[in-house]
Design a protein around this nucleic acid. Structure first.
Lengths: 192, 192
DNA sequence: AATAACTTTTGACCTGGATCAAAAAATCAT
DNA sequence: ATGATTTTTTGATCCAGGTCAAAAGTTATT
């Protein structure tokens, strides 16, 4: 991959670890740049996940299907990794689908390269541990926000968490993310 | 710490990584065995968390206080690590308290030793990454179980998740964990 | 054992948000 | 552009679970 495109993702890594020139080179060699147009299915639940995507620009949705309806698990935007976590790490099937809500540019690493990097660069293990810690904190906040809060408070929390992208996402996707109905969310939005 | 007591925790590590004799020795040297009687406050929100506890036997609760009431974030029992995650990792204050719901025996590692182990044993980084992955999966399941489920289904999911300990925990603590009222939980339990 | 201090259960009532239905608005395809 | 499809809004009704209150049961203290 052209080394000039890697600045952003390297900056992301360097929030957590120092990148040696050797590791930078290994990363740049292994990452593949990919563009998806809006509405593309990037990963399906009936395949094992073999790739992890780092979003440079765009917006993806991770969802599963319950009673025939798509339920949003979460959204991912710029500077975040996206994959089907259990499927990727344990190389088995899981319930999640991933699609693009906007035209999206990604860096893509396949599972063999990930394993290589973890096996040969301890700092990659550290990066993964620390960045997962950050994600963990967000999950705990989300769990807190889902108990003991009204639908309106849930929506407000959502707008804070996804402040710069909440207006790019359709009503139905947001409502299933929050665990409320479309109708209720529509009324909440109307009332101010 | 006496090396004979470490069998269980070593077995836990070895679910994820291979332990070299050197690492075993470092762990055994640094871990301190601690016993808490029931009802002891193990960590308070007004201190920075400096220790991580691995439960050998017993039951701990992680909670925070909202509107003067204790809200259970989660429970931890045998073979699990307990700490105030963000407080421990970032050495800053966070909202969580930890107390013992039963007499509890733990292995205790302080933050300096943790840092030493992470700095000197890449396999510890890997262990942390992989075991966090497991915890992550549980959180995702919990989030799913909290949306689109009735109070009864939430309680059933709780009983499955904490199958061998759900009867050891008081009503109020369970209901705040689930985000329902005590009264509702009492009625659910009564009805069969 | 008696008293005090929690914890759980039971009852009566009320409300936030679900459900069902259909109109209005926005987006897409030819 | 024009009709077709999808998304959002609005309305009417209903019920799961919240709130408040008080009784019953448990556990701890002297």
């Amino acid at each position: 991959m052209a080394i000039e495109q890697t600045e952003e993702i390297f900056r992301h890594f360097e929030k957590y670890i120092k990148l040696s020139p050797i590791l930078k080179n290994e990363l740049a060699t292994r990452m593949v740049f990919k563009s998806f147009k809006k509405g593309k299915l990037i990963h399906s639940a009936d395949t094992i996940c073999t790739k992890s995507y780092f979003i440079q620009k765009g917006l993806l949705r991770i969802y599963f299907i319950k009673d025939g309806k798509e339920i949003t698990e979460y959204f991912s935007a710029e500077n975040e990794w996206v994959n089907s976590p259990r499927s990727l790490m344990q190389q088995k099937l899981d319930i999640y689908y991933i699609d693009s809500l906007e035209p999206t540019d990604c860096f893509c690493l396949n599972v063999r390269d990930l394993v290589f990097l973890f096996d040969n660069f301890p700092e990659m293990e550290r990066y993964a541990r620390l960045s997962m810690g950050t994600a963990f904190g967000h999950f705990m906040e989300r769990i807190t926000s889902m108990r003991f809060t009204t639908a309106k408070e849930k929506y407000q929390h959502f707008c804070e968490t996804y402040h710069d992208i909440h207006h790019r996402i359709s009503l139905g996707m947001v409502s299933s993310y929050l665990g409320i109905t479309q109708e209720t969310l529509s009324r909440i939005r109307a009332e101010k």
